[in-house]
């Protein structure tokens, strides 16, 4: 699994995740991603377009990122969640914690308030 941080607008950090977010995949990126995100400011958009599977460690990682954003008063949103992943998120009520936007533009509008 890989990640990339982008700055689509001033004050917003887009986290692009790529690959299966299973146990080994999340273990590969979680420490580095958390450290980089702690050094960033502003709102967070998580792009899951290229994540075909997300397991329990992946969901926990998303909750950790949401916590990080909440601690500094930033807003957070997800975009590009694939249908099966979205179904699990709905079952888990994860969308109450991190809202989902249908596309990148809508996600940016969501965090911009």
């Amino acid at each position: 699994m890989k990640y990339e941080l982008q700055a689509p607008t001033p004050g917003t950090c887009r986290v692009v995740l790529v690959g299966r977010a299973d146990a080994a995949g999340v273990d590969l990126i979680e420490t580095g991603l958390s450290a980089e995100l702690r050094a960033k400011e502003g709102h967070v958009v998580i792009d899951l377009n290229q994540v075909p599977f997300m397991g329990s460690l992946g969901i926990r990682m998303l909750i950790s990122i949401a916590r990080l954003a909440a601690r500094r008063g930033a807003r957070i949103a997800m975009t590009g969640v694939q249908p099966q992943v979205l179904e699990v998120f709905e079952t888990m009520a994860l969308l109450d914690l991190i809202p989902h936007a249908p596309d990148a533009e809508a996600a940016l509008a969501l965090v911009a308030g």
């Binding site: 926990r60 949401a66 916590r67 888990m92 994860l94 109450d96 914690l97």
Partner: peptide
């Protein structure tokens, strides 16, 4: 799960 933001654990 909504309480997870405030909680220190899962």
């Amino acid at each position: 799960i909504a309480g997870a933001l405030a909680g220190a654990h899962d």
